[in-house]
Amino acid sequence: MEKRIVLNFPPESTQKPVIYDIVKKFDVVTNILKANVKGDQGGRMIVELVADAKRIKEAVKYIESCGIEVSTLGSKITWNGDLCTDCGTCTSSCLSGALTIQAPDWKLKFNPDKCVACKLCLKACPLHLFSMDVFG
């Protein structure tokens, strides 16, 4: 499986080579999608992990044990689904496939695990129903 997570580095945890560690210790394929981490200030990183569910779980546990808070990317996104009209306009610019609309029901579906925080949906939604605070 693949899972996209956000790593929130406090200043004191920036010196640990966690990405190297999870590759070596848990054999997890990592793909850094976005990173803004400063040695003296901390920061955030979006990483895609590819491995079986057990190894991903262990890797996440290890990252957390290093003092780094882990959240799924979706938790950073607010989608006001109650006001959504299912027009589908946002899916046009969502190349990661997190936002989809299709047969049979043509209702908008949002899969946070696939989101790469490109932010194109924030502008694409004609009703402004998305907001995001990643790297805000």
């Binding site: 009209t85 299912d86 027009c87 589908g88 899916t91 190349l95 609309i101 299709q102 047969a103 043509w106």
Partner: peptide, 25 residues
Amino acid sequence: LRSGEIEFAGHKIHTAPLSSLARAR
């Protein structure tokens, strides 16, 4: 268009609606 992808001049183009079929129904 509703299949989610059209082919044109060698490009596979991702399609998306602008109007809501769910609400039209």
